[in-house]
Design a binder for these strands. Structure first.
Lengths: 338, 338
DNA sequence: TGACTATATGGAACCGGTTCCATATAGGAG
DNA sequence: CTCCTATATGGAACCGGTTCCATATAGTCA
């Protein structure tokens, strides 16, 4: 059986194509009688409109593009779940573009900053440069940032500054004075993680308030990768004057630190306290004290904002900041020695 | 600036639209001279063809649909990574449809079994019923199954039968005779996980070969959910005659069992051995002995098969079976008591 | 009853590509 | 030099919808 088109329906129902179209989009005035005829014809032919023709005609893509670096990392997956829960209810498909290099980022930014390519853009954890930002704003593609800050865009943020502060302060309140941080790279990333800066900033603010000087030798940077974090943590823990507590940029980093401690026979939490960040699923198993951020909510909220932007074409820029919360488990305790 | 179309390019280059189209699709014979003129015009106008118009005209969607239940579970995410690595290189977008109920499965199956809706279908861990299978085959939408078995489709499988066998046999070789299994639901799922049956089958075969009778009271079923698994494991471990070893359907199940053991002060691996399945990232941290399956490879291979099917329209049905491999860590040991 | 208005409907034009077909031109063979 | 063929190219028709515009019909009011 050949594809059935709107013409077939019109013929069977004995009406014009315009009328069929009106029935499908239940728009305007169509008499009940005609509506019935058309609906029966649609039923009889098992007709479904061709999506591509519809999109071309309407000048819409009914597609939302999600740009995410390393979308399979636990924190991203949680946010994706949030996105999915919203987009699945809408008439928009969402396509994930995995950004794993500056080159792929630029390629996707170039391709997707055209309204004829996508109806909306959701960018995760990548701060657009000046050049990119101008392109997006000029192109009028509705854009929402999640976990990336830029004044010109509607965005959903986690209060990483406060989160970094609270994590560090928790260690200080337990009595720690020698507090290291294992961070993601502060400068050398093509993705401009805003959260890296902010958590670092919060860490330093907490130290400062407590009158603890910042020690560059206590602040090490490495990739979001358990093995890299383990090696980095080994360096920190074999320091001649090692810290008694470590704030890790992510739970993944924290797991590397845990592994390093295990290798070096350092007892957790007696000889070393660890605070992570994210509260991914895994963290509960490992009893990791960590900062919980509502990743699912951040994703879901970002998706809602984007759909709203698409339908309402508003110029209003919204900034939502979600809080993180300390979840105390078993990797932090007052320092024993010293 | 208004959208630039192929007509604008034709006008600027002083040629017809047909010629521009030929240059874009670098097809057929176009003289070098003309080709240059057109390319310059494209460059000058920063022209990019409208994807929707192209798709309508070609009668293709350039879209591949991925159906996955619970796509954020670790095992699925790993497979998705594999898919992404292949599709990103191709000209196809891939759209993920999250199947979380029989209703959503049926809805997506109905929608997507039309060639005008999608160019290809990749179904994960869902075995199509007779009715669905017929629909797909009739519709001629190229379809590949990953982790789901059906004679009529090209598919990528893990050898779960052998995997279940090897996992159980490992416990038997260590000297265990009282071996329980914490499984996913064998019957009550709308998704027909093939792997559930197969691992169960492998488990029973290994027992049988060792002359150990199957005990229904040692075989418990629950969702792929750490908390559910914990509760189920508690039941098993507070049995009057508890098993000395447990084979868990998934690593997620295994973590629930680990938690239950911790709650009940049962020592791992001295008082209880545990084997999981999947070898997700988390498993290494927890030193879980488990069956590693190459999830990434399964996804990547499935994607390649699908692209191949789309371009070559072959009728040949391929069946690929990937092996699982025992990774021995620290949750298995010979039984101490009895 | 006639004029005017509101409602319902058919169908052409359009969205922006691709492709087929007709035609023009150049080059080669006889 | 003429005829034939291969190559290059322009442009109409088409993909399958939506929407605007023109028209027909029914209903309202004086």
């Amino acid at each position: 059986m050949a594809k059935t088109t709107i013409k077939d329906v019109a013929r069977i129902a004995g009406v014009g194509v315009g009328t069929v179209s009106r029935v499908i989009n239940n728009s305007n005035a169509v008499s009940d009688e005609t509506r019935q005829k058309v609906k029966q014809a649609i039923e009889a032919l098992n007709y479904q409109p061709n999506e591509m023709a519809r999109r071309l005609s309407l000048g819409k893509t009914y597609t939302v593009s999600v740009l995410a670096p390393f979308f399979t990392r636990p924190a991203f997956v949680q946010r994706l779940r949030g996105l999915e829960s919203v987009f699945a209810q809408s008439e928009y498909d969402f396509i994930i573009y995995n950004v794993d290099s500056a080159a792929s980022r630029d390629k996707y930014f170039r391709q997707l900053s055209r309204p004829e390519r996508t109806d909306g853009l959701l960018i995760m954890s990548i701060i657009p440069h000046k050049e990119h930002a101008e392109r997006f704003l000029g192109s009028k593609v509705p854009t929402v940032l999640v976990d990336a800050d830029h004044d010109a865009f509607t965005r959903v943020l986690i209060d990483d500054l406060n989160g970094g502060y609270k994590a560090t302060n928790h260690l200080i309140e337990l009595g720690h004075r020698k507090i290291g941080m294992v961070s993601d790279f502060l400068l050398e990333t093509p993705f401009n993680y805003r959260s890296v800066f902010q958590r670092h900033e919060g860490y330093r603010t907490a130290l400062k308030e407590a009158g603890i000087p910042f020690r560059p030798d206590y602040f090490l940077q490495c990739d979001v990768d358990k093995d890299a974090a383990r090696e980095t943590a080994v360096k920190l823990l074999t320091h001649p004057d090692p810290p008694t507590a470590i704030f890790a940029y992510s739970d993944t980093h924290a797991f590397g630190v845990l592994q390093a401690a295990e290798m070096l026979n350092i007892n957790i939490p007696d000889d070393l306290s660890i605070v992570g960040y994210d509260d991914i699923e895994l963290s509960e198993y490992l009893h990791l004290t960590t900062m919980r951020q509502s990743l699912f909510d951040a994703g879901a909220h970002g998706a809602k904002l984007l759909l709203n932007l698409i339908t309402n074409q508003t110029e209003i820029i919204e900034k939502t900041v979600l809080a993180s919360k300390l979840i105390e488990r078993r990797t932090t305790a007052p320092p024993t020695s010293q």
